[in-house]
Amino acid sequence: MDMNEEIKIERRWFASFDFKYWIIPICLTSTLLVLWELLVWLFDVKQWLLPAPSSILQEIFESRQLLFNHSVTTISEIIIGFLLSLVIGVCLAGAIAYSNVVERFAYPFVIASQTIPVIVIAPLLLIWIGYGMIPKIIVVILISFFPIVVNTVDGLKSADNDTMRMLKTLGASRWQIFVKLQVPYSIPFLFSGMRVAITLSVIGAVIGEWVGSSSGLGYLMMRSAPQFLTERVFASIVILSGIGIFLFALVVVIERLYMPWYEMEKRQN
């Protein structure tokens, strides 16, 4: 028979990088920064009240060693906490999706853990565990495991019913259906949970540091504010949001490299 059927052309995802798409956000951001600079200069706003973007930039450059040292602490807390909550979240989600008994036992606790504000738990951790990195990591885990669990459970449970029946006709057991269909099916859901979790991890680490610590960007902000080193507070914020954006982008890149089929399927449907 005729094998010259039309083959859909494969396009790599990065080929779709569209410069036009970035023009608007870049213009908007630079306009706002210029406006900010002008207003500070025009109304002669005091440095301790609102530093101009240029003096924040200058501060970042001058205190780069200090900022770097504190960043290392914060990034470590974020990454260790995030990876642990990934492991815990995935295991918990797997157990919840596979067993109704586990679901009934565990899910209420998972939800209850989110109704207690982390800001309340953090001082308790300080009392029980003390200063140092561990209580911050625990705060990161507490705040970031939830989106991972909820998304992964959804993914595991929403595998296509027709495909499930097809696998049954091939003789698949419940466990085989779980491993060969439900788990791979849930990966895109897991990644969208991870994207939320990584940004929450940044917040978690800072909250942990605010409550009590001796290093980290959150600590640096807490220390600089009473001294009216406002440009240093802003510098910390800039670095922190840079870290958040970078880690978020990293998750997205891993996602696309790990499952190129997902983007393509999405585009087809």
Partner: peptide, 11 residues
Amino acid sequence: YMPQKDLLLPW
């Protein structure tokens, strides 16, 4: 049993 839809696993 071959169902109507191909039901291939996209991954």
